[in-house]
Simulated assay, not measured.
Amino acid sequence: MTREELTRLIRDASRFGTIFYSDHCFERMDDRNVEIEDVENVIDCGEVLRFEWDPEFENWKAEMTGVDIEGDPLSIQIAINVDGRQATIITCHDERFKK
């Protein structure tokens, strides 16, 4: 899997499949004033920084970075299943919260 292929899988899941948000992600979004539209903007316009295969869950995990709808930096952690029809946003963070 290349970075470009994974980016396409994530964007296709967003457009044609199903995107889930973990409970943890919703908590972080609330804490950090991040809206679903902000996450969608990262998926649509951002880039995959790093990714790896997770053998335990048999899916790809990636960090995508981009900007929210106001232009502020935002990163998301996302897991995507092999067929690319389903993805889960695990968490989100911006530079203020990234350690």
Rank of each mutant, 00 (worst) to 15 (best):
R3Y: 08
E4F: 08
E4M: 08
L6M: 03
I10W: 08
I10E: 09
R11D: 07
D12L: 08
A13Y: 07
A13E: 08
A13S: 14
A13G: 06
S14V: 05
S14T: 07
R15S: 09
R15V: 01
F20C: 04
F20A: 11
Y21P: 07
S22I: 10
S22T: 15
C25Y: 06
F26M: 13
E27Q: 12
M29Q: 06
M29F: 01
M29V: 03
V34W: 06
E35N: 13
I36D: 14
I36P: 10
E37L: 13
D38H: 13
V39W: 06
E40V: 13
E40L: 15
N41D: 15
V42A: 05
I43D: 02
I43F: 03
G46A: 07
E47W: 04
R50P: 00
W60Y: 15
W60K: 04
A62S: 11
A62K: 03
E63W: 01
M64Y: 01
T65K: 12
G66F: 06
D68E: 11
I69E: 14
E70G: 14
G71M: 10
L74A: 11
L74V: 09
S75N: 07
A79T: 05
I80F: 04
V82F: 06
D83I: 13
D83W: 08
G84E: 02
G84F: 03
G84R: 05
R85G: 15
R85N: 15
A87L: 07
A87E: 05
T88R: 10
I89G: 05
I90S: 03
I90V: 14
H93V: 02
H93T: 05
D94I: 08
E95G: 03
E95R: 12
R96Y: 13
F97R: 10
F97C: 00
